[in-house]
Design a protein around this nucleic acid. Structure first.
Length: 510
RNA sequence: GUCCUCGUCGUCCAGUGGUUAGGACAUCGCCCUUUCACGGCGGUAACACGGGUUCGAAUCCCGUCGAGGACGCCA
């Protein structure tokens, strides 16, 4: 199967063009880096082009600072792109929010040729229906009522100014089959494919429409994305067909997993690249680790190891350059790999040990002991220590991988563990939504405390305990800012998850 | 509930009809060492299960079970 795959690729007349399409909804995600790396390798290996496109069509989840962080993080791990919002290119703009006119035009084509229709249900109606279906153990599905509206009814709704969406008219009969380059043919019966919303009532497209239109207009030949997209691929294929466009090849990569095998998520695993950067992981270690996920790198044979003089474990250690040379997409294994922090740390340690002392020093000065970081720490400690050496005691929490406050430290006297954890969860959400600046954080925290009936003292002390592991520390807000948002949030998440686990254990096992 | 995908040590990968099922991380033991780490040596540990096909199945086919994903006016 895989040999054929390559024959097909070679026969393709179009020059290879691939893309990643991150959504600026928060911190740069390890999954984005993973898929980005794969696309990058794919493009370079075939002398093709790698496009970065920003999919910012959901204005409710849009985070203004996110885009720059994504660029920065991807460059940090060593990726670059031929076209994108920041570098330009012949098929721009590369931000979907700047292409809304294009989507509207193409939507009109679909309306005109009968491949789509206007739907007038409100989100509330749809939600209620979904709830009822789920409760009745039925698969949630759009009932297609608007699909059967007469032209007069549609006109009347329009004249009445009713908001509407545009939905894809999926055939009621038959099935769509597409080829996944890693899995072979996959078939979906149309009965199981919903009439997807293509254009939202706010005039913005959904992923499905924007993605297909852009991939076509940007001449994307190979869509390399995560496995979670498999079940929406028939919708995409139907769209390509409705437009009469040539299909790209689809490569669905296995999903990165938490330790419990679920799709990798921030609740169970640090997923922000910022977290890894701030914690002092080296980009080459992160890249190497991602390259290990999915098995596209051929392991060195015993003979190769011997002849290269490498030690056996070095079959797991390789650079981007080596990946470009040896990575083989036909070797990818389809089981979802667990993102194992333990192995990542080992790898990072290997890279640290390989540095010369001067390089190591330089790495320290770029990260944990950078001037900017130390400068930020100065006001936290200067008035609180009487020898310079005291700095270690004062801000040790900034340099620890984990802090584990005992219950006597974090649990307020008048609170139960349950309600404290519930509050911590609220706190996490508030922090997550907050700008990372002392006054903003303080305001958010106070607002939450008032709403939940937590005194400022209880409130702040809890977070202090979680962040520093102690009831005594430099000022909380400033400490949070210096420690960084990604790491602070992760510390809170880890605290909540750990304590929840302990709580659910049978008594006596604590 | 419906559909789709996946299934080799605890974890990441080798293995494509005939192997004592291999390597790495983790773990355990020993060595090195004032300690710790690094390093070296060795050990424990897997083909989900049941049927076929075959002289012979981890490898091919079917079923079962298990895991995951999707089912949003999110991406």
């Amino acid at each position: 199967m895989t040999a054929e795959t390559h024959a097909f690729s070679a026969a393709s007349a179009r020059p290879t063009r691939v893309r990643i399409a991150p959504s600026p909804t928060g911190d740069p995600h390890v999954g984005t880096a993973y898929i980005g790396l794969l696309n990058y390798i794919f493009a370079v290996q075939r002398g093709g082009q790698f496009v970065l496109r920003i999919e910012d069509t959901d204005r409710t989840r849009f985070v203004p600072t996110s885009e720059a962080m994504i660029f920065d993080a991807l460059r940090w791990i060593g990726l670059s792109w031929n076209e994108g919002p920041d570098v330009g290119g012949p098929y721009g703009p590369y931000r979907q929010s700047e292409r809304t006119e294009i989507y509207r035009e193409y939507c009109q084509i679909l309306l005109d040729n009968g491949a789509a229709y206007r739907a007038f249900e409100t989100p509330e109606e749809l939600e209620a229906e979904r709830k009822a279906q789920t409760a009745a153990k039925q698969p949630p599905k759009y009932n297609g009522r608007s699909r059967h509206l007469s032209q007069e009814e549609v006109d009347a709704n329009l004249a009445a100014g009713k908001p509407f969406t545009i939905r894809l008219k999926v055939p009621t009969e038959g099935a769509t089959t597409f080829r996944d380059e890693l899995r072979g043919d996959i078939t979906f019966d149309h009965f199981n494919v919903d009439d997807q919303v293509l254009l939202k009532s706010d005039g913005f497209p959904t992923y499905h429409l924007a993605n297909v239109v852009d991939d076509h207009l940007m001449h994307i030949t190979d869509v390399i994305r995560a496995e979670e997209w498999i079940s929406s691929t028939p919708k995409h294929v139907l769209l390509y067909n409705a437009f009469g466009w040539e299909l790209p090849k689809f490569w669905h990569m296995p999903l990165l997993r938490n330790v419990d095998k679920s799709k990798i998520s921030k609740r169970k695993n640090p997923v922000s690249l910022n977290y890894y950067r701030e914690s002092g992981f080296l980009p080459q270690a992160m890249l190497n680790f991602l390259g290990l996920m999915g098995g596209g790198m051929a392991q060195m044979t015993e003979q190769e190891i011997v002849s290269s003089g490498a030690s056996t474990k070095e079959s797991d250690i390789f650079s981007l350059a080596q990946m470009l040379e040896k990575y083989d997409f036909s070797r990818i294994s389809l089981g979802g790999p667990v993102f194992d922090l333990v192995k990542l740390k080992w790898l990072n340690g290997e890279y640290l040990r390989k540095l010369s002392p001067d390089e190591f020093l330089a790495a320290l000065r770029e990260n944990v002991f950078s001037d900017s970081h130390l400068r930020a720490i100065v006001p936290l400690v200067q008035t609180r220590i009487d020898t310079l050496g005291g700095i270690g005691d004062m801000v040790d929490f900034l340099f620890r991988d984990v802090v584990t406050p005992p219950e006597s430290v974090w649990l307020p006297k008048k609170r139960t563990a349950e309600e404290t954890l519930a509050f911590a969860a609220e706190l996490l959400a508030a922090l997550e939504a907050s700008a990372w600046e002392a006054h903003a954080i303080e305001a958010e925290m106070k607002k939450l405390g008032e709403a939940q009936g937590w005194s400022v003292k209880e409130n702040f002390m809890l977070l202090r305990a979680i962040l520093t592991g102690s009831t005594q520390s430099p000022p909380l807000m400033e400490s949070l800012v210096v420690f960084g948002k990604a790491r602070s949030l992760d510390r809170v998440r880890r605290f909540i998850e750990t304590q929840k686990r302990l709580l659910n254990q049978p008594p006596g096992r604590k």
